[in-house]
């Protein structure tokens, strides 16, 4: 696994992304962030809060899907927590984008960073489908299908793997 990640990172260095990352790291925004000791920790805290909101929303949707929480209909629960999810995702994207400028080369030329990006896009697309599925099932009989339950669990696992990737970017072999 380590070799695979290492080779992926080495390949990234051989692509035009390398030059792009180098020039991005010399941008005014990047230099502004790098020169301020507390800029990165503050962005990371904001990023963590965004993840907390998203993950809590996914967990609460799971609780309702498995009848472990609340008596609201699926549509009400879905509307309540998808709003939290989208706001939190906006915070994640904004803070994540700024963090990218703060440590451009280490992120853009990092195998685990790209795995994380693919997983985040997957999680967003699946969350869209999940929320739509809940609304549809609520309109029929407010019962949850086996497929929706499986998707609910998969989303929790996916978010855990995304957080794992986020933490392990710092430890990726390069």
């Amino acid at each position: 696994m380590g070799d695979l990640l290492y080779n992926f990172t080495q390949w990234l260095y051989s692509t035009p992304l390398n030059q792009f990352a180098q020039s991005m790291s010399e941008s005014a925004l990047s230099l502004w962030i790098v020169e301020r000791f507390w800029a990165i920790p503050i962005m990371q805290v904001t990023h963590i809060l965004g993840i907390a909101g998203s993950f809590a929303a996914v967990l609460m949707l799971n609780m309702r899907v498995f009848n472990l929480a609340g008596h609201a209909t699926l549509a009400e629960t879905s509307a309540r927590y998808t709003k939290v999810l989208w706001w939190s995702l906006a915070v994640i994207i904004l803070s994540g984008g700024l963090m990218l400028f703060g440590d451009t080369v280490r992120n853009l030329l990092n195998s685990i960073f790209w795995i994380k990006m693919v997983l985040v896009v997957t999680a967003v697309l699946l969350a869209l489908g999940f929320a739509r599925g809940l609304r549809r099932q609520s309109a029929v009989n407010d019962r949850v299908s086996g497929g929706t339950k499986a998707l609910a669990i998969f989303l929790v696992v996916l978010w855990c793997v995304i957080m794992l990737c986020g933490r392990w970017i710092a430890y990726a072999p390069s």
Binding site: I48, A52, F55, A57, M60, V84, M163, L164, G166
Partner: peptide
């Protein structure tokens, strides 16, 4: 630790 902490903070913040 991070997964547990974001769960604590996210649910408390709700």
């Amino acid at each position: 630790h991070v997964i547990a902490l974001v769960t604590v903070i996210g649910t408390i913040a709700l």
